[in-house]
Design a protein around this nucleic acid. Structure first.
Lengths: 156, 156
DNA sequence: CTTGTGTGGTTGCATCATAAAACCAATTGC
DNA sequence: GCAATTGGTTTTATGATGCAACCACACAAG
């Protein structure tokens, strides 16, 4: 009957495509931990408090998507580690956007334990803002979608 | 046995808290459509191609989370509509971050159909960037987490 | 080398969420 | 009034998740 959890893999919308890799309950939290330097299976498992089997599945999926890669060692032991690729580190703005949305709109902000600060000054970071090429600040209404221009062949 | 799909509702991490509301497969896509002006049940259903029962569940959850609200009419008919609240419109940077991540890192960028442009000039918007209070551009490594300062009572 | 312990998983089973399709009531269009 | 459309709910099948048990390998001690 092929009910199959609807994949967005072939979707032409870039948001749907990113959700294909990041859209489940745990992946972004695993990446969050990885950005804090977590690398080992057991460390992910204990910090996130999740079942080992699904952690296993998620780690493999993140590796398959090129978000994590397995590295042979680091402290000399024969075990492997999971480290972020550039693609994985590129999710940082997504995590910041999620964080700022909670900080601004959560119904119980007093339950939020941490704030993201500029390391040099110890002051909160600014809200992410959308700007035009020339630097003008853009609101959602100032933007629109255009069809992607066809990539021209042979350089330019 | 109470296996219960682990809720992040009580979690103190703002990322986990936002995923509580947005972290499933469809919610962000529903919000994406709503940002484009989609308001009616059938319109969501046909544009997203999703099953009506789960659309029904998702819309109710988004209303419960204060992301959508039901409005009585608009074109005079007796049906209701789903419109974004300010909290719902506040997810825009999240969607932009997801979009830009795909644009930058997707393995098949040629399959991405649209680009987000500045309406006035028709030129692509800039990448979201993280800045300090004083305007310095920040990389992930330039940031750190601090415990949230206790809110002081009675104004300031 | 053998035994014990911790790390890094896999397997089995119960439960939950999701998907497709059928069904249905209220609202419209005619 | 009658048929089609809208906006759902119900039913049923299957995939995903969660927990606990199990297991292989590395490593350390004796």
């Amino acid at each position: 009957m092929m009910v199959k959890r609807t994949s967005f893999e072939g979707d032409s919308c870039p948001i749907a495509r990113s959700l294909e890799a990041l859209g489940d309950w745990w992946s972004l939290l695993i990446i969050r931990e990885a950005l804090f330097g977590v690398r080992r299976f057991g460390e992910f498992q204990s910090k996130l408090g999740m079942a080992k089997n699904i952690l296993s599945v998620r780690l493999r999926a993140l590796v398959d998507h090129g978000i994590l890669e397995t590295a042979p060692a680091s402290d000399g032991s024969a075990y492997q580690e999971y480290v972020l690729t550039p693609k994985g580190r590129g999710t940082f703005p997504i995590l910041v956007a999620l964080r700022q949305w909670s900080e601004e709109f959560d119904d119980h902000p007093e339950e939020i334990a941490t704030i993201l600060v500029d390391r040099a000054k110890g002051r909160p970071v600014r809200k992410l803002e959308m700007r035009a090429e020339d630097g003008r600040l853009l609101s959602p209404a100032d933007t629109t979608l255009k069809p992607r221009p066809a990539r021209r062949r042979r350089s330019a």
